[in-house]
Amino acid sequence: MPPEASCYSRARGTEVLLYLLPSLVFLAVFTYWPIVRAVATSLLEWNISHPQPRFAGLRNYIVLAADPVFHLVMRNTLLLALVAIPLSIALALLFAVLLHEPLGSLRPVYRAAVFYPTMVPMAAAAMLWVWLFNPSIGLVNYYLGRLGIPRVEWLYDMTWALPAVMISWIWKNVGYLAILYLAGLQAIPRDLLEAASVEGAGFWQRLRHVTLPLLGPTTVFVVAVSVINSFQIFDAVHIMTQGGPADRTNVVIYYLYQQAFRFWDIGVASALTVLFVVGLLSVIAAVVRQMERRVFYEV
């Protein structure tokens, strides 16, 4: 029996490998090999002053550690994640709960309205936000003025430019997260909520003690996706501010692009890539591990 089984499984294994081969080839060529190359290149001094690459050890990492712009960039990226992710998750949950209520025949309309920003390319949406945030003719300032709130220079202001980018990012991402939550809500068995109601639980108690815990797996996924998205923000910055004023909206991927394609410092750009990948993976691993401890996957 055992020999037969192992023979069978070896044949299975080859078959499985065969099926996986196409995606493995693509991953190898477009993901694994570039990662290896990035790590290797990050150890080279390779820039405009030294067009011929040469080994330089950890020089590029030391350059970054001493670079004040890099510190500013890290601060901006983390600030964006820490502020925009909780806000967008809260909003997404709110929208999902509202959409889950019986809204009659208008439900598809509301759902489309919430999801719509997800389908607009970020580059196009960013152009739109440039106009919305225009200090003189933008709608944002128009309504602030109506409310009697002092107008803000938004994208031109060192303090308000990053919040403006956050707002556009939240607008873009909430719809997608809301749809994820809606799917999660629809998977919650009605009888659990009804049982809670029978026991005398109100709306908030049901939300707190039944709905939210059961949305745990969804939340893990939502947080992971949001972290990835927030670390990868580029197009909004490129179009709305080009990282300015004075790098107050410069974020990791944008700085990476500047290093690689404007300053042409391939070594430093590669070091930045390595730090980015390692940083992102460890943040996600930490978040997911933390959260999974408190999540039930079985209902």
């Binding site: 405009i48 002053s49 300015g244 004023p245 004075a246 790098d247 500047q258 300053f263 042409w264 410092d265």
Partner: peptide
């Protein structure tokens, strides 16, 4: 200068920081 783009970013950041009162 060679690496003009970096020079330009350095100068722009100084100008923006100064006019922004930082």
């Amino acid at each position: 200068a060679p690496n003009f783009q970096r020079l330009r970013e350095i100068l722009k950041r100084a100008l923006d920081d100064a006019t922004g009162g930082r």
